[in-house]
Structures are given as structure tokens and as C-alpha cells.
Design a protein around this nucleic acid. Structure first.
Lengths: 153, 153
DNA sequence: AGCCTTATATAAGCTCCTGATCGATCGCGT
DNA sequence: ACGCGATCGATCAGGAGCTTATATAAGGCT
């Protein structure tokens, strides 16, 4: 296990170490049994709407990795299931604003809480120092994600 | 945003904070543009084989979230594309051992390296202290994943 | 008004998944 | 050694969800 990429020569954070750790963790985390079987794209759209508020279809197309017709169909299914609502955009007669409903929000929350429930017994097995290390890193991880989101625009 | 679940009353690591940070990061990380369009399941199987070595179909069925017929078909496609090989299990005439090929390994490696490449400029924007915090947490994150993998058995 | 552009919807076709079922092989009890 | 239930993997029919190509409708410029 040797690391090949260095972000900066005078730091001890190795990119290879980071991606490896993230992927190790996700290998476990992502495969946690799903409460409700929903496709990755579906969850991604609901998550985006929950975080960023109502969006046009075209806006969603740019953030989600799906074609525009695919998204139209997905939103139709989500609307049928009562997870989102289509509302006309008052400022543009062509556009549609997709709003998440309370039920739609619950989907993401339930998954979030369920995953938390799985992690509790694992965290209990860590030493206080280990818990401290993770806790200290979390804000930075979020900041990294924000930097990434900005870079993507 | 208040946290509701505490793993332990005398630690500062909150489960809600952890899942939220992980999900924030993944929201960015998972949506990095894919070099090659492959389904989530496909990548998951290749990853499992790369990490754990040759496996029976039935073993894979338990770790991947897919049905047995679905896996048989997936392995058939992967074999057609030269990413895995089916070999008979010498100890069991019914079983088949799925081996990953060099080309199959390259898929995961390419994605891994590509994601690292995306992270480098982000990491460069962090302060040394922030980098330090992440670096210190990585081994713990990996340990958490290991604990989770054990608990899942 | 005419025409190009933008936003969404529809249509046809393909890929990949699921449940049901089948043939082959294993391992165990007698 | 034989028979029988259990296990392993494959096949098949059907369906969900994606893609590309194209249609419809509204915006906006000249």
C-alpha cells in the first residue's frame, strides 16, 4: 500500500489515503440495507430538493446524472407517489418548479436516521480519542464538499 | 439543525453530525463525473472482487444488493467485457468462482485515481490544521468500516 | 408578425432487474 | 451404496427505468 499522489509536499494528508478511506467507509455505508427500495437517482433528486429547495427540471438535469426526458419521467413517478409536486413557475410559463412534499422529506430523513442507528453500536466501540479524531474532522469534510460543489460550477 | 441521537453521553461525537457530514461529502463525491458509465451494482461487484478476491456467486449475492439471477446476468456481461472470469470451483462441482481480471481491476483504479485528481485542488485550499484533522480521522474511518463489516456478519 | 431559443413532454427501443422455475451436484442418513 | 432434501447456478418471462430522437409550447429578439 504505497501512496502516489501528494496534494502538497509539506502536509501529511495524502489524497490516496483520503480516497481509500472514503471508499472503504462507503463500501460499508452505502450497502446498509435500505428501508425502502428506491433507485440511486431517485434518492439523489429527493436529496437535492430537500437541501436546495424547489428547482426547475433543467436545473435538476445539470446536477443529477440523468437525461432530461429521464428526469421528466422520474418526476412523474415521484409525483404519482406523492413525494414531489409540480407547480408552474410564475415567472416563466414554460417552466415547472418541482417541490418536495412532506412525505418526500420523510424518505431521506428515515434513511438518515436508520443509518445513524446502524452506526451507534460501531461508534461505541471506538476509544474516546478515536471519537475525538472523527468529530474534529467532520466540519472539514463538510467544507471539502462545499469547495467541491463550488468548483463544479 | 439539532442532533437527536447520542452514541454515548460523555463523548463529543454525535451520530447525527457524522451521518450528516458523510452525506454532505458523498453528495459531492458520488456525483463526480464518471469516466466510464457503469451501473452502481457493477462497480460494487468489481470492487468487492478486487478487495476480497475470487468469490462464488452465492457469496456475492449476500454482499451485493441484487438477486441471484440478476447477478448471474451481471457476471455474464462482465465476462463478455473481459472484466471478470468464471472458473470452476475445484472443491464443489456446482459452484463457480468469479475472478476479477487485470482489466477489471483497472476500472476501479481509474475511478479511484480520477477522484483523487478532483480532490487535490480542494485539499490545497484547506489550512494545514484542517488537513491534519482529516488525516488523523482517516484510520478511524477505516476502522469504523471494518467494525461495520464484522457486525454485518 | 416571424423565427430562433429554451423548457418540458412524448415515443420507441434497449438494458438490466426481479420472481419463478429448472437441472446439476452435494452431503447426509440409512 | 443409495436416495433425498438442500444448495448452486442458469434460464425465462415480464417490468421498471433509462436513452435518443422528436414534438409541443412559451419566451424573447428583430
Amino acid at each position: 500500500m504505497t501512496s502516489t499522489q501528494r496534494a502538497d509536499s509539506n502536509t501529511d494528508l495524502d489524497v490516496g489515503d483520503l480516497t481509500r478511506a472514503i471508499e472503504n467507509f462507503n463500501r460499508y455505508y452505502i450497502r446498509l440495507p435500505a428501508v425502502q427500495k428506491l433507485s440511486f437517482t431517485t434518492l439523489s433528486v429527493l436529496d437535492t430538493l430537500a437541501v436546495s429547495g424547489p428547482k426547475r427540471l433543467t436545473e435538476l438535469v445539470t446536477t443529477e446524472q440523468i437525461s432530461q426526458p429521464g428526469l421528466t419521467q422520474l418526476v412523474t413517478r415521484l409525483e404519482r407517489d406523492g413525494l414531489v409536486e409540480r407547480r408552474p413557475d410564475p415567472t416563466d410559463g414554460r417552466a415547472v418548479l418541482v417541490h418536495i412534499t412532506d412525505n418526500g422529506r420523510k424518505i431521506g430523513q428515515a434513511r438518515h436516521e436508520d443509518r445513524g442507528r446502524h452506526l451507534i453500536p460501531l461508534i461505541a466501540q471506538l476509544t474516546p480519542a478515536e471519537r475525538q479524531a472523527i468529530a474534529a474532522a467532520l466540519p472539514v469534510l463538510t467544507r471539502l464538499a462545499e469547495l467541491g460543489a463550488e468548483a463544479g460550477r
